[in-house]
Nucleic acid binder design. Sequence first.
DNA 1: TGCTCCATACTATTAAGTCA
DNA 2: TGACTTAATAGTATGGAGCA
Length: 250
Amino acid sequence: MYKVLHVDSDASSREATERMIDWARLGLDIQAHASHSAEACALFDKQRFSLVLINMKHSHAEGLKLCGQIRQNSQVPIILLGGSPDYALVKQALLYQVNDYLAEPVKSSHLSDSLRNVIELLNRSEPVASPQTAPSQERSKPSPVVEIVMRYVQAELHQNITLKKISDALHFNCAYLGRKFKNEENMSFNEYLLQQRMEKAKRLLEQTDMRIYEIANEVGYTEIDWFYKKFKEYTGISANEYRKKQVVAR
DNA sequence: TGCTCCATACTATTAAGTCA
DNA sequence: TGACTTAATAGTATGGAGCA
């Protein structure tokens, strides 16, 4: 069980968030609550947490301030909830290396996806019995700007994301940012975006009963036709066939 | 090394259609 | 009605060349 610290100044919204998810089923345990950053910091000093969940709905500044305080001496995963889609806020959150930024309204599907990503990360960072990673296979850490791009993609997957929008917001040349991304990640920005979208679509097909057009929407496709085409290109089978195969396999 | 410009290749979007 | 295909077009990303 991974221990979670949940920070939210409003008790009713805290309860609502906690009702959204079957935490135990995900392997998470909400160990402590805090209603403001000072209380959260005090708890953080006393106890070790695997994940910090911060609802910044009532004060964006307070939420970001707490991220900064945590980052001074810890790399614990942080998920921010209830922010606005304002790019300046997202950018600041990403600079604090938050693991996810879920803008209002927070849907349970978004939160559970986000939690699954963090759990995957935590599982990977757990000590393994026989570490086999050869030094030549180790990937160097991406530069801050590439990391911002990747985190933005993960956080805003359901939106219409383009490299142009991101590069404009970061005041980088689009061509330069695209090349820098490819140099560091060994895949183009579009390949990365497609990979993230398709993996999420596969998860939703496997784990939910959502209609295909709803899933297409959820992973950022406004046109279902285009989603069909890309999904088949990526997996080799149509979305429907993929779901049927998963049901048979279960 | 970090960045921009520009031509072109590629991708996303849209519309129109078929099939079950 | 939902799932899926195809083709045309507009917009975007990429890569070569070059500048500071």
